[in-house]
């Protein structure tokens, strides 16, 4: 895991989450902005996956359980597409809030991944 990249990813996920929740509560149905924000979160997760696979080859090893790390990563990868897809089925304000919930959940999972990678015992 690359520290600065992970923090950027966290910032993007939290921002996307808050943005979607605010827009949703303001009555907006999912649109290009909200779906784009979630798509960006997803792309960063895919980059994170590539980084995680490549990092050990460069001496950047996880200190915690790799099994747990990848369980979080795979779980997180599922969330944005599921939320976007569900939002396409019913275009209401609450679907936008769901996008926000998914992005925030990804943020929590990425933070746990960071702990597992960098802090022993996590």
């Amino acid at each position: 895991m690359i520290d600065w990249f992970t923090w950027v990813q966290l910032a993007v996920a939290v921002t996307a989450g808050l943005l979607c929740i605010v827009l949703g509560l303001a009555g907006r149905a999912p649109n290009d902005v909200t779906n784009g924000a979630l798509a960006l979160v997803e792309v960063l997760l895919v980059v994170q996956l590539v980084v995680a696979i490549a990092a050990p080859a460069f001496g950047n090893e996880a200190t915690g359980s790799l099994l747990e790390f990848y369980t979080y990563l795979v779980g997180a990868l599922l969330l944005p597409p599921a939320a976007i897809f569900w939002g396409l089925l019913e275009r209401s304000r609450w679907s936008t809030v769901v996008l926000g919930v998914a992005a925030l959940a990804v943020a929590v999972m990425v933070y746990r991944m960071l702990q597992i990678w960098t802090v022993q015992q996590a």
Binding site: S65, L67, E68, T71, Y72, G75, L78, L79, A82, A83, W86, E90, S92, W94, S95, V97, V98, V101, A102, A105
Partner: peptide, 25 residues
């Protein structure tokens, strides 16, 4: 599942995923 119920279901889904992942590990 329409309206605010969607949010409820979404949170349930996330919790289900979290519980599944943890128990798998």
């Amino acid at each position: 599942m329409s309206g605010i119920g969607r949010v409820l279901v979404a949170v349930y889904g996330v919790l289900a995923l979290a519980a599944l992942g943890r128990s798998f590990v």
